[in-house]
Simulated assay, not measured.
Amino acid sequence: MCLGIPGRIVEITDAENCLAKVDVNGVRRVISVRLLENDMPVPDDWVLVHVGFAMAKIDETEALLTLAAVKKMGDAYSDEIEAFDKSAII
C-alpha cells in the first residue's frame, strides 16, 4: 500500500532542481517539490509526501492529525515509514 504521509520541510537542498530535505517521523530524505513550484515550500512547512514527491502543502494541524490517524493503521504505517527510509532520489 502506498500512502501519502505528512512530512516537515527541513531545508531546500537544491532550489534550481526543486529538491528539499523532508523529515517524516524522524526519517529524513531528499524529495522533489517540483509539483509545488508555484507555491514553493520553505523550511518548517508541512507537505504531503507520496513516492518521493511533495503533492500538496498542508497546515501543521492537518499534518499532525493525519500522522496520528496513519499511525493507527499499524503495519501499513510501519511499512510506509520503512519504504520511505529505504528510498532516495538519485
Results as ranks from 00 to 15, higher is better:
P6C: 09
V22Q: 00
M1T: 13
R29G: 03
M55P: 05
V47W: 01
D39N: 13
G26Q: 06
N38W: 10
S87D: 08
V70T: 10
S32R: 13
D85P: 01
L64S: 03
I89S: 10
R8N: 04
D59R: 14
G7C: 03
D39G: 03
M40G: 04
P43Y: 07
G26Y: 02
I31F: 00
Y77A: 02
Y77Q: 02
L64P: 02
V70Q: 14
D23F: 08
G52C: 03
K71T: 00
I5W: 00
D44V: 00
I12K: 06
L64D: 07
A56M: 10
I81F: 05
E60A: 03
E11N: 13
E16T: 02
F84Q: 00
S78I: 11
V42F: 12
A56P: 07
I81T: 06
H50Q: 13
I9L: 06
K86S: 07
V47Q: 05
I58E: 11
A76T: 05
D23N: 15
I58M: 12
D45L: 12
A20M: 09
V33L: 04
M55L: 15
E60H: 02
V33H: 01
E82M: 05
I5F: 05
K21F: 10
L3C: 10
A54C: 11
V27Y: 00
N17D: 04
H50E: 12
V27L: 02
V51K: 10
V10W: 10
L67G: 13
S32N: 12
A15W: 04
G26P: 03
V30E: 05
K72E: 14
A54S: 11
N17W: 13
M73W: 02
V70K: 08
G74T: 14
S78Q: 11
E62Q: 11
H50K: 08
I12W: 00
V51I: 09
E62I: 11
D75I: 14
P43E: 04
L36K: 09
D45H: 11
F84G: 05
I58N: 06
V22E: 00
L3P: 01
I89P: 02
G7V: 07
A63V: 04
L19M: 08
C2Y: 13
W46G: 03
D23I: 15
E16N: 01
I89A: 06
V30C: 08
E11W: 01
L48C: 09
V47D: 04
D39I: 11
C2N: 11
G4I: 06
I90A: 12
D59Y: 11
R29V: 02
D44F: 15
E82R: 02
S87Y: 04
G4C: 13
G7L: 06
V51F: 11
R8M: 10
F53L: 13
A20P: 08
D75C: 06
L48R: 14
M55E: 09
G74M: 08
C18F: 15
T61W: 02
M55Q: 15
T61H: 09
D85L: 00
A69K: 06
N25K: 11
F53W: 14
V22K: 00
D75L: 14
P41W: 01
I89H: 09
N17Y: 09
D79I: 05
V47R: 09
I90T: 15
I58P: 04
S78T: 08
A20T: 15
V51P: 01
T61R: 03
R8F: 06
A76I: 05
A88T: 05
E62C: 04
A68D: 14
D79H: 11
